[in-house]
Design a protein around this nucleic acid. Structure first.
Lengths: 145, 145
DNA sequence: ATGCGGCGGTCCAGATCGTCCGGCATTTCG
DNA sequence: CGAAATGCCGGACGATCTGGACCGCCGCAT
């Protein structure tokens, strides 16, 4: 749906969402009002869901990151999902096909905290935890082509 | 390191990174210059890594999302990592502890495309693919407290 | 062909916003 | 106890955004 200019706008905002309209316009070769118009359209259409800040978790005390696969025990699926949503240290969770029902990302301050959180799920689901060592690919957009 | 005001600034920007300085200042109860100063400091300190746009993948043709666990065959670790980084449909990848060496998120336009990409890895690693059905928790920040 | 209408663009002006400065209060440290 | 550093505010100036008026292109139908 978005054309080439829209894609360039998105790409530019992906690298700096706080860029001024004027700069954006300059880079895509349009006037500010036109750029503003396109931006608004992209938001209204739902292509752009919003603008956010990228925070370094380590700098705010979250030194440990884990990816947990979660398989709820029979009949516990909804309770487990509820629990996952309510735990704020879960920063991302997908419901997927396959044996593991959920895959969640956790940000915690220590192994102890990780253990404490997993304990709350232990009687409702089987879990499989992997500690993140490095991030070869940090969150990025798929090709806009 | 960041104090309460910094955390409020971050929280506000997390919900709308394009908010004007003036609005930001109004919400945290500071003047524009002070807010600007804090924002700059947060960026310089690396607490804030940058500002980005959140795009709905489905609206740009990526109707399918998968999470793939990847276990490189002996001696193939670096080749596999290289490959993962180079495939732009991989929008996120973590190197983790445990049997699975990498956990990657893929955005693709079809099952066929997913298959094509996994084929490129097939002779260098064992893979385990889970298709994302829903996202109970979409990307969010851990508690800033 | 040609005239019409809609879409998407530019230009301009008024309003808004961001940044730079000087000054003040509080805290820190010699 | 004094001096310097920190963090904040207000005002002024320059930059930016927004909305309106206008224009050109293209598809369509007369």
């Amino acid at each position: 749906m978005p054309d080439d200019l829209d894609r360039r706008i998105i790409a530019l905002l992906a690298s700096d969402a706080r860029m001024s309209l004027k700069d954006l316009a300059g880079h895509v070769g349009l006037s500010s009002p036109s750029t503003s118009e396109r931006l608004k359209r992209l938001e209204e259409q739902g292509v752009i869901r919003g603008f956010t800040v990228e925070v370094d978790p380590a700098r705010i005390g979250y030194t440990l990151q884990a990816i947990v696969r979660i398989r709820p025990l029979p009949g516990k699926l909804h309770v487990v999902q509820q629990l996952i949503v309510e735990v704020p240290e879960v920063t991302e969770c997908d419901k997927v096909t396959g044996d593991d029902c959920f895959i969640a990302r956790l940000h915690v301050r220590s192994i102890e905290q990780l253990d404490a959180i997993l304990d709350r799920i232990a009687d409702k689901a089987e879990t499989n935890t992997a500690i993140v060592k490095t991030q070869p690919v940090m969150r990025r957009l798929p090709p806009l082509a």
